[in-house]
């Protein structure tokens, strides 16, 4: 699995995510998201399964759209998608795609689990770069 750390950003919240593979990078980015918005708890009881299917023109946009989707699920549908059961990435005629199955729990809009409202996941300077150990990306969340 990958790792993430908070990076200083004056107005918003920025995370740097490192992972060996692209799939891990997506999964770890989702973990980073949940770490920012709430108190991530492995014991959280999940009561629903969601499927997310996305297509985009490039892999960076796909990552932001994936995080944007789980942000929508949390802020609007109140689905705290605390577990990723499977995540597959691939290419098709339109660019790149993601198929993902998420474990989710319905929470109250003002649940104690939540500590931050992320307005949106931004595309600011988004770039998935190579490192000696795999891949790295820095994501800015607008709060």
């Amino acid at each position: 699995m990958g790792e993430f750390r908070l990076v200083e950003h004056t107005a918003d919240i920025s995370v740097e995510v490192n992972a060996h593979t692209l799939q891990d990078l997506f999964i770890t980015s989702a973990e980073a998201y949940y770490n920012v918005v709430g108190t991530f708890n492995d014991d959280l009881h999940l009561d629903e399964e969601l499927e997310v299917n996305l297509t985009s023109t490039n892999i960076e946009y796909l990552l932001i759209e994936f995080l944007g989707e789980i942000n929508y699920q949390l802020n609007v549908k109140h689905n705290f998608c605390g577990k990723i059961f499977s995540l597959n990435l691939g290419e098709n005629n339109n660019g790149v795609f993601l198929d993902c199955r998420l474990g989710s729990r319905k929470i109250e809009a003002e649940s104690d689990i939540l500590k931050e409202e992320i307005k949106a996941v931004t595309y600011h300077n988004i770039n998935i770069g190579k490192t000696d150990n795999g891949l790295k990306v820095t994501i800015v969340f607008d709060i």
Partner: peptide, 9 residues
């Protein structure tokens, strides 16, 4: 002015 995303704040 301070650091935003895209435009500065």
């Amino acid at each position: 002015i301070h650091w935003g995303y895209g435009f500065p704040i």
